[in-house]
Design a protein around this nucleic acid. Structure first.
Length: 849
RNA sequence: GCGGCCGUGGCGGAACGGCAGACGCGCCGGCCUUAGGAGCCGGUGCCAUCAAGGCGUGGGGGUUCAAGUCCCUUCGGCCGCACCA
């Protein structure tokens, strides 16, 4: 090794792909698409002079391994270990530059020790707490699942029914950060769709809490439409509401009790299907509208959710569709208090009134408008009325301005074995006591019976359960539950750079040198779970002084989905799966990667096509033939790549600074021609060389820009153009073999991120032994992207009628003059006077006659 | 129902409001070959074809000198939420 002079620090770049779940032993095409192309991006960044960190690991805890164990008897620890082993082999066959020294597996004690530590940090800050709460209980998995895991009232994983059950659970207080989690979205370089999904998931509503008096005492309702308060004709409590029974009059008791029981029996499937037809019962009681002092009947109905707002709503059937449907069914009065208005039209008028004719519900108007029938508050715009009515009631102690969020706290307890133990013990005297940090990790025992019986498997393991209280030392029991695996994945990116650190989860001081993640790549399906949890945990850790950033993932990209050849999602049952291994064996890893790059728009994905990968394999061979041929030529004397560049690397200039210097040179100082020797230069420049250099520099510029935005398909397209141009040049008379070779050497660097192994081989064919990834990514010369003449489309009255070649350096006026002087154009105009000429330099000229 | 995204050749897919269809597949032709499911070169949106032309980005309307791109509307597909008051 040569002696290295100290180099200025390269800028850091943390590229992270969502780690994989080792549920099956094989990588599928989606993994390849995600990891293979993210690796190409990472390699590009490395060649661009960044100090790239790209780790890989396994999200190893979770239900599938445990379900597999229940079915087959193979212990989750064993199947997980085996699966990881095979996946590691496959991942290595990908030839990605994963930093395997940083590898983590969340099921290893040296990882989950710190997951438990994280739990304790949240506990210390009051962000982890227990409460008896209705939870989603999967009837098949026999465990609590998160709201996010309930799909259409069914368990996302197994498809079985889900019912409500009350249990004492650990929760993370993510709702404390609801506002900040919305605000933070603005500054993130994330897909807008994902940001919007998070925003909607958090579901901020600004409104008012209004008190209604009743015989059983006051109760509050939450509303975003205080402007409609005068139109309240009844109120509705959730059946579970605390006041329900106290309000109910004796003659309605039976009906109410029946309804409560019926609601409790419903699981979410029934409640959803029941949503089509609203039901409810009258309690016999009347409450008082605080604005109008009118009595309004109190109903209970399951369309009111106990878990949102106050569990009670004021019903305004004239201006709310749900209330309207309920009122129609139970014959309740409908009172109009908002009149349609030309919103936004101002006093000058403008937009038409909303059309009501033909509507099946002419007495329902849900938009904002102008208040009416509202006493002193009539004749106001909705927004103003909302404020004034709330403020008025607030002075009388009957209302408060209030913001509500749809987001609920994160339930993290799971009645499952294969997860991180919860570091809490229950002492008869001291209650729930956190395990001291020095006693971590609480080890997950191996010898358990994980057959489900509705209780946590760990609860049957006496050796595990029986412990002592950290405070008094007396006998105590451990928490039998384990943590949601989303807890494991909420902080893993922090651990990678410090995976070997035994005494702390990460080094706070060093963390700033690599964290946060600069580019995060993974599926869009995690928008409201993993990605939200990780943002929350980062903020909680920030407030605890453990990290100094808010956002874990500065920039995010979702890859699309590779479909089966039939255009459907790949699935074993459909028999339309394609295995990456088969294609790696057939064509090699680079060809598979190149095809995934070229055949799809990265964020869209699309159907797999065997013809497509065959074509890419042929293309790779075509490039190989070119490199082989070019390698046979003698290099030119001033072989620029090898001399200047290598020298540059050994000097104090980092790749960054050379790049910058050069750019400045070309802009400010034409004398800086030395730096330009980086570019391939022919001995004597003929038109053929000029043309080749144009294509080359265009490819350099476009490909670099394409890599930055994960537009791999267009990057490959530009590369194909370059290869075609090289073939053309090689076939031409009077070619300069040495020059061709130099262009090819640079061309190898251009494609290297997408074909790392082939590129190295090609580099060898061109007489270069150096690791191509220690080279800089080529730069382009802007001056080479200009040709002497540019072809202009000449339009007459916006229709293209002719194409003329005009000097590239002419300004708009000159272009117009030259175009009008052109013979063909003159013929087109046939003497007609040009009223107006629109000249777009470099593009077209539009003559209006 | 609400919110978002997307509809472009036979196919995968390109297009800062500025020549639609880059690049590739497929197809047609040429060269080279004993041969070619190899390679190299050329052609290829549709209609018309001797040519000049005309028509084209799901449908309809609009803004603009100029619209795949912006606005309205409608149809179709995908994704998310789903009684959130």
């Amino acid at each position: 090794m040569e002696k290295k002079t100290p180099k200025p620090q390269k800028p850091k770049y943390y590229v992270l792909e969502m780690f994989s779940y080792p549920s099956s032993s094989k990588l599928h095409m989606g993994h390849w698409y995600n990891y293979g192309l993210s690796d190409s991006f990472a390699r590009f960044k490395k060649m661009k002079g960044f100090d790239v960190f790209q780790p890989m690991g396994f999200d190893a805890f979770g239900l599938p391994a445990e379900n597999y164990a229940i079915k087959t008897g193979v212990h989750p620890a064993d199947s997980t270990r085996d699966n990881i082993a095979t996946m590691e082999v496959q991942l290595k066959a990908m030839n990605a530059m994963f930093d395997w020294d940083a590898e983590i597996k969340t099921c290893e004690p040296d990882y989950y020790k710190w997951t438990q530590w994280l739990f304790l940090k949240l506990y210390e800050r009051g962000l982890a707490y227990q409460k008896e709460a209705p939870v989603n209980w999967c009837l098949s998995c026999k465990t609590v699942i998160a709201n996010e895991q309930v799909k259409d009232g069914e368990c996302e994983r197994c498809g079985a029914g889900v019912e409500k059950k009350f249990m004492k659970q650990w929760f993370f207080r993510i709702t404390d950060y609801a506002e900040e989690l919305i605000d933070g979205l603005d500054k993130l370089d994330w897909p807008e769709k994902t940001k919007l999904m998070q925003k909607n998931w958090i579901g901020k509503s600004e409104g008012a809490e209004v008190s209604f008096a009743s015989p059983a005492g006051d109760f509050k309702v939450f509303t975003t439409r205080a402007d409609t308060l005068a139109g309240v004709t009844y109120v509705v409590l959730a059946p579970e509401h605390a006041l329900t029974r106290r309000l109910t009059t004796p003659e309605h008791k039976n009906a109410v009790e029946d309804y409560i029981a019926q609601t409790a029996r419903q699981d979410d499937v029934e409640r959803l299907s029941a949503a089509k037809e609203k039901t409810g019962v009258f309690t016999g009681a009347y409450a008082v509208n605080p604005l109008t002092d009118e009595p309004v009947p109190v109903y209970i109905a399951d369309y009111v959710l106990a878990t949102y707002g106050t569990g009670a709503v004021m019903a305004v059937p004239a201006h709310d569709g749900r209330d309207y449907a309920f009122a129609k069914k139970y014959n309740l009065p409908i009172k109009q208090v908002i009149l349609p208005v030309n919103v936004g039209g101002g006093d000058k008028g403008g937009d038409a009134l909303p059309e009501k004719n033909g509507s099946p519900t002419p007495d329902l108007y849900e938009d904002d408008g102008v208040t009416a029938n509202s006493g002193d508050f009539s004749g106001l715009r909705s927004a103003e009325a909302r404020y004034k009515i709330t403020a008025f009631l607030r002075e009388r102690g009957r209302a408060e301005f209030r913001v509500n969020y749809r987001l609920r706290d994160w339930s993290v307890s799971r009645q499952r074995y294969w997860g991180s133990p919860i570091p809490i013990v229950y002492c008869p005297e001291h209650g729930a006591v956190p395990v001291p940090e020095k006693d971590l990790p609480v080890l997950l025992p191996y010898d358990v019976n994980f057959t489900p019986d509705g209780r946590s498997p760990l609860s049957r393991h006496d050796g595990y359960m029986n412990t002592t209280c950290p405070i008094c030392g007396k006998a105590a029991r451990r928490d039998p539950d384990t943590l949601d695996t989303f807890v494991c994945s909420s902080w893993y990116y922090l651990r990678y750079p410090f995976s070997k650190s035994a005494d702390k989860p990460w080094d706070k001081r060093k963390a700033g040198k690599i964290l946060p993640v600069d580019k995060y790549v993974g599926g869009a399906e995690h928008a409201c779970m993993h990605l939200l949890y990780a943002r929350f945990i980062a903020r909680a850790l920030r407030d605890a002084g453990w990290v100094d950033f808010d956002e874990p993932f500065t920039s995010l990209v979702h890859q699309g989905i590779i479909l089966g050849p039939d255009g459907n999602r790949m699935s074993k049952s459909k028999g339309n799966t394609v295995s990456p291994d088969d294609y790696v064996n057939l064509y090699g890893a680079d060809v598979l990667r190149l095809y995934l790059a070229f055949g799809f728009s990265y964020i869209e994905g699309g159907p797999w096509n065997d013809d497509g990968i065959r074509a890419v394999a042929k293309f790779a061979e075509r490039v190989g033939r070119l490199m082989e041929r070019a390698g046979g030529y003698q290099s030119t004397v001033h072989s620029p790549q090898s001399t200047v560049k290598d020298k540059a690397q050994s000097t104090v200039h980092s790749p960054q600074s050379t790049v910058k210097d050069k750019t400045e040179c070309t802009i400010h100082n034409a004398q800086c021609a030395i730096a330009d020797k980086d570019f391939p230069t022919p001995e004597r420049e003929t038109a053929a060389e000029t043309e080749l250099l144009y294509v080359y520099h265009n490819a350099v510029k476009s490909m670099a820009a394409d890599f930055e935005v994960f537009s791999f398909n267009t990057a490959v397209a530009r590369y194909m153009e370059l290869v075609n141009a090289l073939y053309k040049y090689d076939a031409g008379a009077g070619k300069d073999g040495g020059f061709l070779k130099e262009v090819c050497r640079s061309a190898v660097k251009l494609i290297a991120p997408l074909a790392p192994v082939l590129a190295q081989k090609w580099y060898g064919l061109l007489g270069k032994r150096k690791d191509v990834f220690r080279e800089s990514y080529p730069e382009y010369d802007e001056s080479r992207l200009k040709r002497a003449e540019t072809e202009y489309a000449v339009q007459v009255n916006s229709k293209v009628r002719a194409r003329v070649k005009l000097p590239s350096d002419a300004d708009a006026k000159e272009l117009e003059r030259l175009a009008l002087a052109d013979g063909t154009v003159k013929g087109l105009l046939n003497g007609a006077a040009v009223k107006k000429a629109i000249v777009i330099p470099g593009r077209l000229i539009n003559l209006i006659i």
